[in-house]
Nucleic acid binder design. Structure first.
Lengths: 339, 339
DNA sequence: CTGAAAGCGCTAACAG
DNA sequence: CTGTTAGCGCTTTCAG
């Protein structure tokens, strides 16, 4: 920077001002500075900028995994927003481990990210109330964060699951089972409640939220359930991973869908429409989830820390039922039902 | 830091030394420092550290998109390696736009990332030879980077495509068409060459690499090809996106696979085994691609800049043919063929 | 409109 | 083993 100043025959402050266009600089001087920058290929050191001004121009993003297309798409959209605002995204995965999540979050704070977007793992995430996390805005998505300070963006899990279950009931099903991977997850828990509500309202018997976190467990559980007396006639799967496991299990068991067993799953996924039969699902706005969360973060940047609401807000995005064939419907084009 | 030093009744240097365990500090002093750190909840400012020592403890990662599961999985594995080394990952997407890619890379350099892992977009990426990029290690994956300085990790595209095409030929197909999204992409181009090689070796006629970047184009192209005189009896699709588009097109056109048309695609994807019929694919080691690239980067960190090889190396990962049914094979379990 | 001085938080280099 | 000094590259503040 000193070299640029020397070459343009100005002070370093003038260079800084040209770079930040903070105060007006005479056109001629500005031109000389720009030329010098060009000639020297000078680029400001963001670390030094950050150190001085406490603005790192970066946000942190924590997701359980990028292997799951759901989170990958969310991450894509969070980054897209950050990019459009001239921010960089420091990303990391927690693998659903709250300890990893917490230490990664701390590490991001040390890097002075200006804000955090995360999909919190289940567990003691009350630690985010620590003093150090008071200084920056934090937005959670998909699952809310304990501690009311934080805003979150979620989808209408209860309504969606209820809608899907009701549809199964309309098809005449009376014994419907709910498959979830982790009953302690906010999303799964809320969807299970929606499922229960629908069944209860119809005067039917509800099932527990089955804890089948691996493909093997889904297989075993489904097999056991079907072999029992009074077997279910339909399954509701709690997320796209379980839906895929369920599809495999049913196929490998030689069960015909929807003739023998009908299914509805929460969360659409690529090629769900191309399965045999095409899968009926509750579609959630995955792109909007990431986008909205990031936008909420940048909105909070505008306000001063002392103006932050003591209670975080919650934004709930709408879902819809996409009728294909696994539920028992027969039609050429999928039909979309909004709650 | 000064506060910690004061509380522990030592100098700031001692605090620094305890933090970095660089020089030996007496056990008693260290204990007092740790206690002070604990009491004050002190965390070092990584920006200041970086400014002083030029070590940002972060790497940059540029992928075309996180919407594509292929890149998402690569990104996941790059980050996993970085995390294990105590580094953070600054991620960004280029959307296959070389200008975005370049400006994002420059931006990362200003942030003083210590290295860069990227899947380069097609275009004038010779700009990475700029002086500013000389100072840090850069590894590309999936596609090599112009300019021999850079190392890259790729898969055996030629061998894989040849193997898949040969398999189709063994099934008796004589008119096989190649579907790619962007013929200028290294991967697509090389796979097309492998396809040609197989056909040429068998004395059969080869087709151009069709440039169908959208689902619509795949549909139109397939429809046109099938309606022509002397229609193809098989398709080879250049990547998982095209494979999915092709599957949809064939289904919507009412074409039976593999009876009317056989297919083989490059790159396996989730649920490819659950399609009707299950898809025969060339499987590439996606996880290893990201992992290997990141590891290569960290290896280069160990060497001094002047020891970097003038010519980058190229690591080629093996692929395999996974025989399911879309090629015309009939078997219960998929069969894996290594070249 | 422009420049000089001071200092952000840390650590390399040198003393003690 | 521990403290002092200086300075990384920038911007805020205060003078011209």
């Amino acid at each position: 920077m000193i070299e640029v100043a020397r070459l343009a025959d100005v002070g370093t402050m003038t260079v800084s001002r040209v770079l930040n266009s903070s105060v007006h600089v005479s056109a001629e001087t500005a031109r000389r500075v720009h030329e010098a920058i060009e000639r020297l290929g000078y680029r400001p050191n963001e670390m030094a900028r950050g150190l001085r001004g406490a603005k790192s121009k970066s946000i942190g993003l924590i997701v359980p995994s990028l292997t799951d297309p759901f989170f990958a798409i969310c991450a894509h959209n969070v980054n897209a927003v950050a990019q459009s605002k001239g921010y960089s995204t420091i990303i990391t995965t927690s693998n659903e481990n709250p300890d990893t999540e917490f230490s990664e979050a701390e590490w991001m704070l040390q890097k002075h990210v200006e804000g955090l977007v995360l999909c919190p793992s289940v567990g003691r995430n009350s630690r985010f109330s620590d003093k150090i996390f008071q200084r920056i805005p934090i937005i959670s998505f998909d699952r809310p964060l304990q501690g009311s300070r934080f805003s979150s963006v979620v989808v209408d899990n209860h309504v969606g699951a209820k809608l899907g279950t009701q549809h199964l009931i309309e098809h005449g099903h009376k014994r419907i089972l709910f498959l979830g991977d982790r009953p302690d997850l906010f999303t799964i828990r809320t969807r299970h409640q929606g499922y229960r509500r629908a069944l209860l309202d119809a005067g039917l018997k509800t099932g527990e939220c089955l804890d089948c976190d691996s493909e093997d467990l889904v297989f075993k559980y489904v097999k056991t359930a079907l072999a029992g007396k009074n077997p279910p006639t339909a399954f509701f799967s709690g997320n796209n991973r379980i839906s895929r496991y369920l599809f495999r299990a049913l196929r490998n068991l030689g069960v015909r869908v929807p003739t023998d067993i009908a299914t509805v799953g929460f969360d659409d996924f690529d090629m769900a429409d191309m399965m045999q039969p095409p899968l009926t699902v509750i579609r959630q706005p995955v792109e909007a989830l990431g986008k909205t969360a990031a936008e909420a973060l940048f909105n909070q940047f505008k306000a001063k820390a002392e103006d932050w609401p003591a209670k975080g807000s919650r934004i709930t995005l709408k879902v819809e039922l996409v009728l294909r064939s696994s539920c028992g419907c027969t039609q050429d084009a999928p039909k979309v039902i909004k709650p």
